[in-house]
């Protein structure tokens, strides 16, 4: 699967918070079968929140740093995500340096919490080590609704 779990960034405040959105579709290949039908795995719901956090780190540092997940103190998924749900992720920075950040956050569907996580510890890495900076910046523009540069 294409491992991008954020479709839009709706708002962000440098080094403070981000709200992002992911629409889900039955056409995606991320669904897990259950006796009652397909659901998004716990891990991918958590990943959507963590990817919001890494975009906040990248935007806050002008794409210089990106986050790698080191630890999660606790995460709870009170209900499942099903095809057609629209996820809204909201991550809040509790602390941040040039080496690491700690965040907490929520994933909601229609205002109902589907995942809540605390103590999300991320190592901040040189973003160029992971991806081409031009590609990352282009995707950032798309997520922010600015489209491709002309």
């Amino acid at each position: 699967m294409r491992f991008h779990l954020i479709d839009r960034i709706e708002s962000w405040t440098p080094r403070e918070q981000i709200t992002a959105r992911k629409v889900t579709s039955v056409a995606e290949d991320c669904w897990r079968p259950t006796p009652a039908g397909p659901v998004l795995s716990f891990g991918l719901a958590l990943e959507a929140l963590c990817q919001s956090a890494t975009w906040l780190m990248m935007l806050s540092t002008d794409y210089r740093l990106r986050a790698a997940l080191l630890a999660v103190d606790e995460a709870c998924a009170p209900r499942d995500v099903v095809p057609g749900d629209v996820l809204r992720t909201h991550a809040v920075v509790e602390s941040m340096s040039d080496e690491a950040a700690v965040l907490a956050g929520l994933v909601t569907v229609g205002g109902e919490t589907v995942l809540e996580a605390s103590g999300i510890l991320c190592s901040l890495m040189d973003a160029e080590r992971l991806d081409d900076p031009a590609d990352t910046a282009l995707m950032g523009r798309q997520l922010l609704g600015k489209g491709a540069p002309r």
Partner: peptide
């Protein structure tokens, strides 16, 4: 793209 790594959440899964 430059550093393939298995996402930690997939290990959790």
């Amino acid at each position: 793209a430059r550093f393939p790594v298995l996402p930690g959440v997939l290990l959790l899964e």
